[in-house]
Design a protein around this nucleic acid. Structure first.
Lengths: 271, 271
DNA sequence: AAAAATCAAGCAAATAAATGCAGGATTTAT
DNA sequence: ATAAATCCTGCATTTATTTGCTTGATTTTT
């Protein structure tokens, strides 16, 4: 015990003391993460000693870093987490709350062992993210984002559809993607981010995306559209298909909402 | 103007006044981001008024949010940024500094108009990230991470190789990927994350990855290995090819380093 | 099952960050 | 080119956070 207090005093007056005492939290976090990356496992006591702060402080640091997903806290220290240099921030998605509502409803449509086609878009991403971890499913997708998110699910088999990557939407397009789709027959197809109109059907502004969606529709038994109500009754340049091609429409609105009535009359199931 | 002061007073004494004045920075940031997401463009003065804080505070907030990449600050306000829910944190890559050295050296091997095959792995990611934006190149890759990073480059055409996605490495594998590779003849092939040994050649522990790399080697004129020196002279379960299949070896070490001498003797170019 | 180590919650003092303001520099609009 | 608006830099004050400590609960080790 006396040793410790002596040590502290020495440090304080020594000309070789660390250049600055400004052990800010940020700085400590950097240090800890570095240590964890290199050694793969650190002891709480070691860090506290290295940084000359109390163990409580380090404990709190580790707790925070754990919560932030940057390491795994264990009794007496922390261990490294297998690291993914890409992180997903769902809270930054536009109109995230409504998309989450849609996602929740759409989950009901899933059954174990189904084979599913799914496009890109943040609504679909939200949906994929909320799939229960215990479901056993097979997904085909041309979307980089969706594929990445799907591969977090232990019981989901993800098959990436290849092709030329579109810079903005980050999905594979072109002949190769279309060829692959021709070989598939899926149970469900989730179409994201589209424009829907009673008379003009589904439409898009990118021709290549139109081709892709047409191919996906051909390759699937049932077509499901996850759509924010703001996209209803809006059209774009190129038509994908008639509105009746859709079997189920999922929006953030209550199914009894009058806006959805005409869609229901056309024989579309509303969720 | 009088209106304004009245409005404020009313707010303050009204039973319907906002639940609390605790306009913490975090809360404000949330509010600002929401506003920007919805309106796509906000005025500094408006926000300051809405939140009842000084314009300086809002200015500082916008500056911070801009720095964090969450919006774009402009004169008098801010506009939304096209949003990517996945963000790339290169600083969190293990042994990032050395990988950056390797990446820098490897850039020299690139020529405009080349067609290039590239696998996954953080070293390759680092390399892709440091490709000069003005280079015109075509890349084929089975890696989700690499494809995402490549699509940030305006003058790079990215073609995703499809297949079954491996959960850990996040690359496409299997028959489909192999078939696609059979159709390609590339100028260069960048092999990442492998184990290299003078006698036992290149090796891997995942059989599917071995198949993929073999196919990539077959489909390319020149093979380049970006390898941390710690991976030199180590082997894994399954052999990919002889060491002599490699044309150029790039490590973080100086080319004259004796560790590299035996590789040079085998006819491999060292960078 | 007892002893040692580690954790968790609450607290007061120390510390860092945030805020509004004032002045002068820039930028935009007219 | 001039006026108006916006921005930047310090600064003092307020405000929130951080920190080490204490005590009692858990967990691990022997």
């Amino acid at each position: 015990m006396q040793d410790l207090s002596n040590f502290r005093k020495n440090q304080q007056f020594s000309p070789f003391a660390e250049s600055s005492d400004d052990m800010l939290k940020e700085t400590r976090h950097e240090h800890i993460l570095n240590e964890v990356r290199i050694r793969n496992r650190v002891l709480l006591a070691d860090i506290a000693h290295q940084l000359e702060v109390s163990e409580d402080t380090v404990r709190r640091d580790l707790k925070e870093l754990d919560l932030a997903g940057k390491l795994k806290k264990v009794h007496g220290g922390a261990i490294a987490k297998s690291f993914n240099p890409f992180s997903f921030h769902e809270e930054e998605i536009y109109d995230h709350a409504n998309k989450a509502i849609i996602a929740e409803k759409a989950i009901q449509l899933l059954r174990n062992k189904q084979v599913i086609l799914i496009t890109g878009g943040t609504t679909n991403l939200e949906f994929v993210n909320s799939i229960p971890r215990e479901m056993h499913l097979t997904f085909f997708t041309p979307s980089l984002h969706v594929a990445m998110q799907l591969s977090q699910h232990k019981n989901v088999e993800t098959i990436l559809i290849g092709g030329k990557v579109s810079r903005d939407a980050q999905i594979a397009l072109g002949a190769e993607a279309l060829n692959t789709l021709n070989l598939i027959k899926a149970d469900l197809c989730f179409l994201g981010t589209g424009h829907l109109d009673l008379d003009h059907g589904l439409s898009e502004f990118d021709w290549d995306v139109v081709q892709l969606k047409r191919a996906m529709i051909r390759s699937s038994e049932k077509i499901i559209s996850l759509t924010l109500s703001t996209k209803l009754n809006s059209t774009q340049q190129y038509k994908i298909c008639d509105i009746t091609a859709i079997h189920t429409l999922v929006t953030e609105l209550d199914p009894s909402n009058p806006i959805l009535e005409p869609f229901h009359k056309k024989g579309i199931k509303i969720l």
